[in-house]
């Protein structure tokens, strides 16, 4: 790909991506700050235990500071600062601060993942992915390098596709999902369940099987979004967004919404490029 001016749709994609990344960064950092007690000596993520891991980086005196509560607070504040910088309105809607902010968020993700080891979830993984993709896109926009910006789009669209497809395929391989028992089983838990949904699902096995198969089929067929016409593509992504909002409502998976939605602008651009290339446009 030659070095050409960045197309407005790439800048638009970056703007939406970074706003949603900022939303996730602020939310996840605030929730971690609320959970600082977990990192204390008597907490579930006590360094007195997690520090026993072999192969830890740094010499001992430095290590104690690197994993201390004050350092964790600094890392989370840098994530918050990164999120706020991403929300700054630049005259051309994307500015040099975006790259630094995305990298700060990415580094904070890597650090928190390393420090906590336990308790990470899919929203943390997708947040890390989006920060990486946004950093590459920002670098492409800052350097006026369309190829580089497309690399970030490729990363985000690729990971989103893998995420939905792998989730669907793993459910397809599971008898509990195929038989419809997964929905009721999960809804009956305190951790991810919902009492209203559990009572509703209890006497409706047909409904449970339908919802399980709907999840399996739609997730597994997610790669088809790359050949759908624009109208159907937008409708499909709206359905996936509704799926994440319903997971937030019924399962308390609030932090999944923002990073997953942040990949959609890249999916839309990648779909458009693939349809152009395949002569489907």
């Amino acid at each position: 790909m030659d070095r050409v001016d960045i197309a407005p749709d790439i800048v638009q994609c970056l703007i939406i991506t970074k706003i949603l990344l900022a939303a996730w960064s602020l939310l996840s950092a605030a929730e971690w700050l609320f959970n600082l007690h977990l990192f204390r000596s008597d907490g579930l993520l006590s360094w007195k235990i997690l520090g026993l891991r072999p192969g830890l980086i740094g010499a001992p005196p430095f290590r104690s500071y690197f994993y201390s509560e004050s350092f964790i607070v600094s890392v989370l504040l840098s994530r918050i600062l990164g999120g706020l910088v991403l929300l700054l309105p630049y005259p051309n809607h994307a500015g040099p601060g975006d790259l630094a902010a995305s990298l700060a968020i990415l580094l904070s993700c890597l650090y928190m993942s390393w420090r906590s080891r336990f308790g990470g979830d899919g929203s943390d993984q997708m947040g890390m992915v989006v920060a990486f993709g946004a950093a590459i896109m920002s670098a492409g926009v800052a350097m006026d390098d369309a190829s580089l910006a497309w690399c970030g789009i490729f990363a985000l669209a690729g990971q989103a596709t893998l995420a939905y497809f792998a989730a669907g395929a793993a459910k397809l391989a599971s008898p509990v999902w195929r038989e419809g028992g997964a929905l009721l089983g999960v809804m009956q838990t305190q951790s991810y369940g919902d009492s209203f949904a559990a009572r509703f699902a209890q006497d409706r096995p047909g409904f449970c099987t339908f919802v399980c198969w709907l999840t399996i089929v739609t997730e597994t067929l997610f790669p088809l979004v790359f050949i759908l016409p624009p109208g159907l593509l937008m409708a499909s992504l709206a359905c996936f967004a509704a799926f994440h909002f319903s997971n937030a409502w019924f399962m308390g998976l609030n932090a999944f919404v923002w990073p997953f939605l942040a990949t959609y602008p890249s999916v839309i651009l990648a779909s458009s490029a693939i349809r152009d290339w395949a002569g489907l446009a």
Partner: peptide, 13 residues
């Protein structure tokens, strides 16, 4: 990333 959310064995406990 591991993307196999709640599968193959969903957390039902």
């Amino acid at each position: 990333p591991r993307w196999t959310f709640f599968a193959p064995n969903p957390g039902v406990r």
